[in-house]
């Protein structure tokens, strides 16, 4: 009986010590982790929207709108304004139909609806084939800059194999197809909800 109690209390002491250590490190690193996450996102956001064109805090000026484009039906949008006037929006949609799961993206459009740029933030596409959507692997994703919902028209918003204007990669069609489709859908969404997106809080 005493033996069991003794053993149990030793185990309890170790559990408390372990938990305490983890809690302590959490407390001492959480601030830095938040700063890192914020900086990583800001770095990508500022790469898409030129810094001198806006004067608000891109990171905190956000809006969430219900849409199937976003994760959990919730599309997050970062807004760029200058002197209160809308300049650009960065939407964070996800393509559900990648070759290997979801492809999370950033789509930046200026107020007039012209694409400032697209970036892939995370994906699990095949290394060497589908991962060319990642800027670290190829420049393909830069090719969206300057296009808009009406340029090209609906039929052009496809990869070349499907009769559109966007390149696919050798050996991978599904990945770029998913990206092109989601960019197109995001542009439609932007046009439909532009007023709501920039509505002051």
């Amino acid at each position: 009986m005493w033996q069991i109690l003794k053993t149990a209390s030793i185990l309890t002491i170790f559990a408390i010590l372990g938990g305490g250590l983890v809690a302590f490190s959490y407390q001492s690193t959480i601030e830095q982790i938040k700063i890192n996450e914020r900086e990583a996102l800001l770095r990508t956001l500022t790469a898409l929207v030129p810094k001198n064109t806006y004067d608000n805090d891109l990171f905190t000026d956000t809006k969430e709108i219900e849409s199937e484009l976003g994760v959990d039906n919730n599309l997050t949008i970062h807004l760029a304004r200058k002197a209160g006037q809308p300049v650009a929006a960065i939407l964070i949609p996800t393509a559900p139909d990648g070759y290997n799961g979801r492809i999370n993206m950033l789509v930046a459009v200026n107020y007039a609806g012209i694409l400032l740029g697209v970036r892939v933030t995370s994906h699990q596409e095949t290394p060497g084939l589908g991962d060319k959507i990642d800027l670290r692997k190829s420049n393909w994703i830069r090719g969206f800059k300057g296009y808009s919902l009406l340029n090209p028209t609906d039929n052009g918003w496809k990869v070349k194999r499907d009769g559109g204007i966007f390149d696919q990669f050798t050996g991978a069609t599904i990945t770029p197809r998913a990206v092109v489709k989601t960019v197109h859908k995001t542009l439609s969404f932007y046009w439909k909800f532009r007023d709501k997106i920039f509505e002051p809080k």
């Binding site: 983890v22 490190s25 690193t29 830095q32 982790i33 890192n36 996450e37 900086e39 990583a40």
Partner: peptide, 12 residues
């Protein structure tokens, strides 16, 4: 867990 937090804080 602690090493993961450290990595996240200092080598993001």
């Amino acid at each position: 867990t602690i090493i993961e937090m450290m990595l996240k804080a200092f080598y993001y």
